[in-house]
Design a protein around this nucleic acid. Structure first.
Lengths: 223, 223, 223, 223
DNA sequence: ACCTTCGGGACGCCCCGTTGCT
DNA sequence: AGCAACGGGGCGTCCCGAAGGT
């Protein structure tokens, strides 16, 4: 047990070091030596935990997915109206990606995997059902118009959010501002006309709850 | 001059070989030797044209950007209504990315650059003004409701389209189907109610004009 | 322990091989492959001990400094008269530099390193005080005339000895003959007239104690 | 003719660039590209003038030898007493080596060349007879004591001067100060006692004629 | 004669994913 | 799980030619 605890510490040290370096110079430019140096472990220790550099990336991606999934679930489980939750979850996830280096790097890596090494997995889709369920619940709750195809709506919302992140990473503009913009447009399409002001205000309030760091501390290369 | 023609041939051979290989196995797993072998040139020739492997990627990205920009401009210059053009351009570009390996690879590379090597550029933003101009023109033409912020709309449209591509690349579902879905939702938000049927039909027609390759020839794995 | 001993052997083998090659063809023209071949180690072993080619040079420089300092100190600590020691140390050091390739190459590298990379220190000067102290002590002991500037004498002695080696290496003439010649002249300048015969004889005896290697293994042009 | 003048300009540009670079980073670490870039010529132009990188070094060595020989001869031909000339020539040459990069680099290269490739001669010896002749003439003129072996004296003088340069290059102390020191000692050994003050003063005067550049521009390239 | 563009290969350095021994 | 060593390439790049212009 004690040993296993120590092993876990080592493993985490490696992952953290890798996250930092991947963020700073990118996966391709990070060499194993740098990782083990920063982690303060030996090559042997590294090799004990990970068969290869790529597997560290995989572990990071997994961890990032787990964290995001958990955050998503936790928001979605709240008893609030489904659309409220759906909106909030997009901001929460966006903030996570910005604040949690591991998540950010995991995201980058997932997107880059195909170019990094001949075995890229997809893996995006798994959040789709969550979005769809929320939209369907929102329809039932009367917050989303019944004359809209829930799947269509869910997919579009999701696509828009992904696009916002892409643009934000690349262009430097604030992600939460982009999310707000996108929601303001999308809400027109999916909520009954009379609730539009309410949701616009809701979005505005949410976006102020997650004030993005003024500038680009987070560095975060583009993608 | 004649000499320079020869050089251009060599350069193109290198780029084409690189595109093929980057598509097949990814940038990270493509080694220079493979590129020069497939291009049928020597390392010396390669080095004359490109100082580094990365610079080939950069050249591909540039070329991809140029091609997309040109296609975009060519569609936008058509005398049709701006919203028609805007819709069409999203399909045209989507199709280019699917059909033109170079463009597809360029896209992938641009997204992955940050992880590939310590100097990722952004570069997405360039197309933003084009979209914005189209939306504004569409407002003037009465195809887009006046009570919407054109910038908001343009950004959201763009984000959605990018997201569609991301999901399509990752999930394997047909890009043109995704685009259609997205447009069906977005149009609800931006066009006057009475023109919605017309534009829904327009989107449907357009999407059929670009029938996606049945299955995965193009596929292009990951990302 | 046993393992570390083995590692040290490897390390030394690398250093020795590097010394030989740097001496023969110069640092810039020596390739790693040559070093590892001559050392009889693998590239991996090399890389384990030294992160880079340059670091081998650094190690050589350090070792050279250590060896000379130690040899000098050991001779100077003998209870004999200071001038005796001084004479002897010139032969000892000359012999070291001549016999011990590492020392010679280390000297060369130190001078070169400053340009090759940022870490160039001088540090020749370290030995100057030792020579000076000996001359001063010899003055006190009456072996060196009081009317001479000790610093002047020390510097000139040192310069002459180095020059002798230079000429010997280049011209092929025996170093011990040259040293003797030089001392015969220098002694005229610094010792009281009546002790000249004694010291002439002393030099002769010393020179026979260090019979120079018949021919020029090391060649080594100096700088 | 005009054409040949242009060619000569190119040739000189190449040599000057090479001298600078050899001084800065050493022969082995200087690549052709750097030379042609700094010279502002193309590879083809370089290749027209020099068959190989080494031949540039050879040209530099030759030019350096020529310049030194000329300076030496010019001083030695003066009708002054031989010892005066001998002293002066050591300062003149020392100054040349310090002031004229080409000469300095040529010196370095000559010493390194023998190892770098088979065509390297030492060539130190060629100045020996000049020194010996001067000493013999000085003996005849009564400036050097008759009870000294002229060869011994010449060799020692020469060795001292070379050693001074070595120490000066390495240690950073002023070469002309070192030469002065050395001469002050050596003169004690070789001139009649009554002329010692005169020659000491002579050396002092000469050394003031060649005030060394305050700091160590020269430092010396590596191998 | 003098110079340029374009290209040819051979390595040089570094690094990386592994293996034995302890 | 640390310490020492292993080789196989990867990328970069270097020194040099060939072929053509002026």
């Amino acid at each position: 047990m004690a040993l296993q605890a120590r092993a876990e510490v080592t493993r985490q040290a490696i992952i953290e070091a890798a996250v930092d370096l991947f963020e700073e110079v990118g996966y391709g430019s990070t060499d194993l030596t740098a990782i083990i140096n920063r982690a303060g472990v030996t090559k042997g220790a590294f090799y004990y935990h990970f068969p290869t550099k790529q597997s560290v990336a995989a572990a990071i991606i997994d961890e990032a997915k787990t964290r995001i999934a958990e955050a998503t679930r936790s928001v979605m489980e709240s008893p609030s109206p489904a659309l409220d939750n759906l909106i909030r979850v997009t901001f929460v996830v966006a903030e996570m990606v910005d604040r949690d280096n591991l998540v950010w790097v995991g995201n980058q890596l997932r997107q880059a995997m195909g170019q990094i090494s001949e075995s890229g997995q997809k893996s995006y889709p798994e959040r789709a059902p969550v979005y769809l369920a929320a939209v369907e619940k929102a329809v039932a709750e009367g917050d989303v118009r019944a004359d809209i195809d829930p799947d269509e709506a869910a997919q579009t919302i999701w696509a828009s959010m992904l696009g916002c992140r892409l643009l934000s990473d690349a262009g430097g503009e604030d992600i939460s501002a982009r999310l707000t913009q996108a929601w303001r447009v999308l809400l027109r399409a999916i909520v009954p006309e009379q609730s539009l002001p309410h949701f616009h205000e809701f979005v505005t309030r949410i976006s102020q709850t997650y004030p993005q760091p003024s500038s680009g501390s987070g560095t975060c290369g583009p993608q």
